[in-house]
Amino acid sequence: MNPFRPPSPSLRFIPVWRRNFLVWRKLAVPSLLGNLADPMIYMLGLGYGLGALLPEVGGVRYIAFLAAGAACFSTLNAATFEALYSAFSRMQVQRSWDAILNTPLSLDDLLLGELVWAASKAALSGAAILAVTAALGLIDSPLALWALPLVFLAGLAFAALGLIVTALAPGYDFFMYYFTLFITPMALISGVFFPVEQLPAALQAVSRVLPLSHAVELVRPLFRGEVPAAAATHVAVLSGYALAAFWLALGLARRRLLK
């Protein structure tokens, strides 16, 4: 049977999500600190340090500009780490997936559970940045709350891309390629740290097809209290990434695990 047949998941993905949530709850404090510390250092260090040297960027103070980027970047990082290292541990090292596949769950359910879990964790990271930004007095419109479902959607796209890598990975070392060749370049040209307009035209064209830049295009106006332009397009692109990448990741995982 073709491993790349369409996904047919069911609500049985929920116990997988709950399993991961239970583990997370036990480690919630260090995990939250870890989720927050990294983007915080970027945001406050670059925001205040670099921001002091810069006039306004994109019409706002640099730290306010950076906050929206940092929310998306931390969503990207949280989703990617969960879909790569954590999911790989459960698949290959702890053999938790083997145990789960012996129950009425299918691989489709299992992988969907991992996807939604990674996106949930990612959304939490994004939400934490939103909360800190609000606490710093850099947000003054409730419209910013729309960022929450959108970082969840972005989390789905980033996690699904990560699951493709996990389904292919022979070991943990493999993940370095993904970070060096995809995640870092994407973070640098998607408008997280500076406006995409600063880039040469060719790089701007590349940027336009990357999921992170669509997330940034949605979240940044919302942080400023504005409705994003072409919101439907950005949502459609992120959804498309999430669906296509999940389909591919599932096909690869079926090929790997259901031989």
Partner: peptide
């Protein structure tokens, strides 16, 4: 099923292992 390789959940206690596994059966 008792598999050849132990795949108990190392993050959980004994009781949690049973509880979480039961959820997979609905």
């Amino acid at each position: 099923i008792v598999p050849q390789m132990d795949n108990l959940d190392p993050d959980f206690t004994v009781a949690e292992n049973l509880l979480v596994y039961g959820r997979y059966f609905g």
